[in-house]
């Protein structure tokens, strides 16, 4: 389902060229649960950004669900992001002036879905994540765990095929972090591909497949069967 070939990403930092990704080949099938691990600066976030079409590789090809995304223009890429990819971030990235409900509604609004249809789907989704009683609250009135649930609700409302999570427990205490992980694993069990970047080895162990990145290369790609 996901096929990266010969991906290169070079950043210009001052005079220096930094190779964030060097000849990365990577593939994932539908429904996989993958943890990308590695030290800071190893390129794991860059890889996730490229998977999420938030960044363009300098070279190489990326195929998602049969679409050669590296050939698409900005508008078409935006469309792929909208319908196929859900993001969960470390800092939640909720819009502070919008209520939980409005934050979750945002992808539907951007897609131009009708108001009535939107309301229905938002209520359903928020209920499903156990924050049905928090719809009118703004992010600063929610706990960290609740915020991340809102963010996950937002990431899943368009029924994406893949969820990309970047240190999604990094800003949460252990128990709410666990809740969030369980929610994501639940989604994974329903067949959504889950790819997460994490520093946390505990979290890494839970994934069925672990990728270790060092210096812009995939150094280790292990299936973890006992999980």
């Amino acid at each position: 389902m996901i096929r990266l070939q010969q991906i290169q990403r070079v950043f210009q930092v001052g005079e220096e060229e930094v190779h964030a990704l060097r000849d990365v080949d990577f593939g994932a099938d539908k429904g996989e649960y993958i943890a990308i691990m590695g030290p800071s600066g190893s390129g794991k976030s860059t890889l996730l950004n490229i998977l999420g079409l938030l960044d363009r590789p300098d070279d190489g090809t990326y195929e998602l669900d049969g679409i050669m995304t590296t050939d698409l223009n900005d508008k078409e890429q935006a469309n792929v992001r909208r319908h196929k990819i859900g993001f969960v971030f470390q800092f939640f990235h909720l819009v502070p002036r919008l209520t939980a409900e409005q934050n979750v509604e945002l992808p539907l609004v951007l897609a131009g879905v009708d108001r009535a249809e939107r309301k229905k789907r938002v209520v359903e989704t928020l209920e499903a994540f156990g924050i049905g009683d928090r719809v009118k609250h703004r992010p600063d009135q929610l706990s960290g765990g609740q915020r991340q649930r809102v963010a996950i609700a937002r990431a899943t409302i368009m029924k994406p095929t893949v969820i990309l999570a970047d240190e999604h427990t990094g800003n949460l205490d252990r128990s709410s972090g666990n809740d969030v992980v369980e929610i994501l694993e639940g989604l994974n069990n329903q067949g959504i591909t889950l790819i997460m970047v994490t520093h946390d080895p505990e979290l890494g162990k839970r994934a069925r497949r672990r990728i270790k990145m060092v210096d812009g290369r995939i150094e280790e790609d292990k299936k973890n069967n006992q999980a």
Partner: peptide, 16 residues
């Protein structure tokens, strides 16, 4: 900035 980045991640094109 982060809101704009988020909108893009949620599927907003540049023109939007």
């Amino acid at each position: 900035r982060s809101e704009i980045g988020l909108l893009k991640a949620l599927g907003a094109a540049r023109s939007q």
